[in-house]
């Protein structure tokens, strides 16, 4: 399943890029992120908790940066398992930052997510809707954070 999206942030591109790489800042902005821990230069230990109505999902696993071209391009790959064995997922994420010239930066992302197990039953609908919501929340938090910096 491929989820794509795009949003704009009002901030200098360098500052934005650095914030994205600031583990603590990122964890604070990303809704549901319980833990983001840097294991080495490219590997992160991530635990995300999401709730869809009465269904609770806690995915934890590793994300590995596979390509970093500061401050415009980023690729990572990861794998995660649900705590209660609802399933596991693999993802490939690409992110591009583009200066729009008016002080805004456009962030576009593409996530290729592959889910297996009971979670997959809910599949697309839940994931897309959740991704949408997480994105909105993330943009809000990130903007606020950048303003505060």
């Amino acid at each position: 399943m491929i989820i794509e999206g795009k949003f704009n942030i009002n901030a200098p591109i360098k500052k934005l890029w650095d914030t994205l790489f600031d583990v603590e800042a990122l964890a604070a902005c990303l809704p549901g992120a319980e833990k983001i821990e840097k294991l080495d230069d490219t590997t992160y230990d991530v635990t995300m908790k999401q709730r869809v109505g009465i269904i609770k999902v806690t995915m934890s696993g590793k994300q590995v940066l596979t390509k970093v071209e500061a401050p415009t391009h980023l690729e990572m790959e990861g794998e995660a398992v649900d705590k209660t064995k609802l399933g596991h997922m693999k993802d490939k994420i690409t992110m591009d930052l583009k200066e729009l010239g008016n002080g805004e930066v456009e962030i576009s992302y593409k996530m290729d997510v592959n889910m297996v197990g009971k979670l997959a039953m809910f599949g697309d609908r839940v994931m897309r809707s959740k991704a949408n919501e997480v994105e909105k929340e993330f943009v809000k938090n990130l903007s606020a954070k950048l303003k505060a910096l």
Binding site: I54, I55, T84, K85, L86, K118, F122
Partner: peptide, 9 residues
């Protein structure tokens, strides 16, 4: 249905 799938416990 969702309880049977183990999604809700």
């Amino acid at each position: 249905i969702i309880m049977r799938q183990g999604l809700v416990t």
